[in-house]
């Protein structure tokens, strides 16, 4: 598939349609607009709510290992299942969900290329409002794989030393500090701008008009040649709350084959609130 480094993590809408009802394949929809799943979803797909189910309800953090076990097991997903994730906004939160599945050690997780927009616009792809009624199973996640997640100390070090690519995937206006967040967003920060040394490569640079990812050659030309991301160095992607950066994390790690890529899920809502952290505008 399009010469990606790890094509096995991406499936096409036709593949999903041909595998509807296949018991070893579990579909998960995760949307920015949490109403979208209720309006209609791929038959058999469960819906995860990023606001209430994918983060810790008290601390600011990803959901705990226990909570992940309960959520995923409760959705009838076993560790041996193939999990196919898709969502709105070209798979923003679907990529975030994929990142969580990998962080907690799920072997076979995949994204549906193009997300729900592509599925919706293909005449032969059905949607339903019927919720599946999965039988809960026991799910035991691995301890979180911190090689996939960047925390503040290493972000600061990456910025200070330049030994790691920092990729800012937000819109150009957020990068320059003209706005702190897209209008209407409740998660924001005290300061605008970007982490010193970061390159501005908005997440949508990676997708075609259909919503599907660009080819590996196109992606290489953009990220490596035009934007100067150094493939010999590790990389950290960030955005505002960690969902758009999951999308770029996926591109760098699985489509382009970077070895060490981390998602900084604290992102600007953490960094832009830190006392004394260096900021460029």
């Amino acid at each position: 598939m399009a010469n990606y480094a790890h094509p096995e993590v991406l499936v096409e809408t036709d593949w999903v349609k041909n595998n509807l009802g296949n018991p070893g394949i579990k579909l998960v929809e995760i949307d920015v607009d949490t109403k979208a799943y209720d309006a209609g979803h791929v038959p058999g797909a469960v819906g995860f709510n990023w606001q209430t189910q994918l983060q810790d309800p008290v601390r600011r953090d990803i959901l705990t290992q226990d909570a992940f076990d309960k959520l995923v097991g409760g959705a009838g997903i076993s560790p041996a299942d193939t999990v196919v994730i898709y969502g709105d906004n070209n798979n923003w939160f679907a990529a975030y969900g994929f990142w969580l599945f990998k962080l907690y050690g799920h072997k076979d997780a995949r994204l549906m290329n193009g997300g729900r927009v592509k599925w919706l616009n293909e005449a032969d792809k059905p949607l339903t409002t019927e919720r599946p009624n999965p039988t809960p199973v026991a799910y035991k996640a691995a301890a979180p794989n911190n090689a996939l997640r960047a925390l503040v100390p290493e972000v600061l070090e990456a910025s200070r030393t330049g030994k790691c690519n920092l990729v800012d995937v937000r819109s150009p206006d957020e990068f320059t500090g003209r706005v702190i967040a897209p209008s209407g967003m409740s998660e924001t920060a005290q300061r605008g701008g970007h982490i010193p040394g970061a390159k501005s490569i908005p997440w949508n640079t990676a997708v075609q008009p259909s919503g599907a990812f660009k080819t590996a050659d196109e992606l290489r030309a953009i990220y490596l040649e035009q934007k100067g991301v150094d493939p010999k160095k590790p990389a950290i992607a960030y955005c505002r709350i960690g969902e758009r950066s999951s999308h770029t994390w996926f591109v760098l790690k699985y489509l382009l084959g970077f070895d060490q890529v981390k998602n900084y899920d604290g992102s600007w809502t953490e960094y832009g609130n830190l006392i004394g952290a260096p900021i460029e505008k």
């Binding site: 897209p182 008009p209 919503g211």
Partner: peptide, 23 residues
């Protein structure tokens, strides 16, 4: 218009299409 994107279309058109297709 959360963050302009190619192919995203218009959120309202997509949600209406979803209702028409799923219901």
């Amino acid at each position: 218009e959360l963050c302009p994107a190619p192919g995203l279309g218009d959120g309202s058109i997509n949600l209406a299409k979803t209702h028409a297709k799923a219901s």
